[in-house]
Design a protein around this nucleic acid. Structure first.
Lengths: 209, 209
DNA sequence: GCCCTACCTGTACAAAAGTACAATGTAAGC
DNA sequence: GCTTACATTGTACTTTTGTACAGGTAGGGC
C-alpha cells in the first residue's frame, strides 16, 4: 500500500514519516498520476494554509483519481469537515495527528471506511438528539501543576501577557515569569504558545513534547 | 479480536464463519457480557426479522457496552440505516454481505471508523452538511489572509517559532516577521499566542484588543 | 526544631518577538 | 505602460519573553 502525501511545501512532516516510513510526497496533485497509478494507494492532502474554496476543489480533484483520500486540516472546522467528506474525502483529521492515529485512519479508509475525529461523530449524534456520554480527553499533565501554576497556565492559554497575568493575580511580573518557567519544565514545552496549545489540547508541530 | 454475532436464532450464518472462522454467537444481548468483556471485540447485530423499535433499542443497548457495533439488516432501508447509526452503530451492512466485505467492515469499525454502503455515505453527508454548518462558524477572518500569510499563520498556530517557520518556508526570519505583522493587523490580534488561539477557534480573555 | 514545598521577589542577562522605515522584484490587471 | 497587490529582505530599534542565580516567607509534617 502506497501512501502519497500532497503538500504544497513538497516535504514530509516528521509525523507522517513516523507513521509511514515509506511514504511518498508530492507538492501538487498533478504529480500524483505517475506514482503507483495502478496499485493500491491512498492520497493524503495537506489542506492547511489553503483557502476554503481551494480545499474543496483539491479534495474533489483528488477523489476523482480513484484512490481513498484523507483531508488533513490545520485549523479544525466542523462545517468544513462535512463539506470535504461530501466532496469525496474518506478521512478527515488534523494535519499533525499522531503517527498511531494516522495508521488507524489509513487502515480504515483503505478498507472503504469513513474516518473522522470522535468529536465530529459526537457532534453529528448530538444534532440527532442522541445523548452520548462524552469523555472529553483531559490533559493529564496539568495535574502536575500547583494551584497557582494552574491559574497562570489558564491565563496564558487564553492569550494573556505576563503583565496582565500579574495584574490579575496581584503579583509581580517577575513572579509570573517564575511560575511560567516552572510550568514549561513540568509540561515539557518551550514557550507560551506551545503551553497555550497544550492546555487547549491542540497538537503542535514539535516532536519533543 | 473477538467477533460476537448476536442473532435470535443462535446460529452462525455460513458467510459469517467464512469471514471469521473463530466467530462467537449468542442469541441475546444479555449473554454478551461474559464473552471477552475485557479485551478487544466487536458486536454484530442481526436485525433482520426485528421490528423497527426493537432494532433501535438493540443497537442502543449494544452501543452502551463499549465495543464497536455493526448493524446487519435484511432489507436495506435508507432512513433506517440513518437511525441505527445515530443510535450508536459504527457499521451498517446487509446481513448476507460477502465474507470479504465483512472482514473489511470489521477492520474499519475496529479501528474507529464508520462503515456503510457507498450510496449511504453520500446521503449521510448530505444531511450532515445541511444540519451542521449553521451551528458552528469557522474563522472567517482567515480569508483576508494571502496564501503566504495563511501558511505562516498555520505554523504559528501550531507552536512554530519564527526561525522554524523561516526554515520551513525557506525564507528569511525577517520575512516571517513581516508576514506575521501583517497577519496581526488583519486579524486584530496583538501577539502570536492570540493568533494561535484565533486560528484554532479558541476564545481569548482579551480585555483591550 | 528541622525539612520540604509552595509562593513570592530581586538583579541581571540572553533570546526571542515585534515595529518602523525603506527598498526591490514580480505577476496580474487595466 | 501603469497601477496594484504580493512577496521578499535589510537595518535598526523597542518590547516582551524567558533564564540564571539568589534569596525571603509561611505552613505542614517529622
Amino acid at each position: 500500500m502506497v501512501r502519497i502525501f500532497i503538500c504544497s511545501l513538497g516535504r514530509l512532516r516528521e509525523r507522517w514519516v513516523l507513521a509511514f516510513p515509506d511514504a511518498h510526497v508530492v507538492s501538487d496533485l498533478t504529480e500524483v498520476g505517475e506514482q503507483a497509478s495502478g496499485g493500491a494507494r491512498s492520497l493524503w492532502l495537506d489542506l492547511s494554509s489553503m483557502h476554503r474554496d481551494l480545499r474543496l476543489e483539491s479534495v474533489t480533484a483528488a477523489a476523482s483519481m480513484g484512490s481513498p483520500v484523507v483531508a488533513m486540516m490545520g485549523a479544525p472546522d466542523e462545517s468544513d469537515a462535512f463539506a470535504l467528506l461530501q466532496a469525496g474525502a474518506q478521512g478527515y483529521c488534523h494535519v499533525e495527528a499522531a503517527p498511531g492515529q494516522l495508521r488507524e485512519i489509513a487502515t480504515v479508509v483503505e478498507h472503504g471506511g469513513l474516518w473522522m475525529p470522535p468529536n465530529l461523530v459526537q457532534r453529528f449524534l448530538a444534532v440527532s438528539n442522541r445523548v452520548i456520554p462524552s469523555s472529553m480527553p483531559e490533559v493529564p499533565e496539568l495535574n502536575q501543576l500547583t494551584s497557582r501554576e494552574l491559574m497562570v497556565a489558564e491565563q496564558v492559554a487564553h492569550g494573556a501577557s505576563n503583565r496582565e497575568i500579574a495584574q490579575a493575580l496581584e503579583i509581580t511580573e517577575r513572579t509570573v515569569k517564575a511560575h511560567i518557567s516552572a510550568i514549561f519544565e513540568k509540561l515539557s514545552v518551550r514557550d507560551r504558545v506551545q503551553l497555550a496549545l497544550k492546555v487547549n489540547n491542540i497538537p503542535t508541530y514539535n516532536i519533543r513534547n
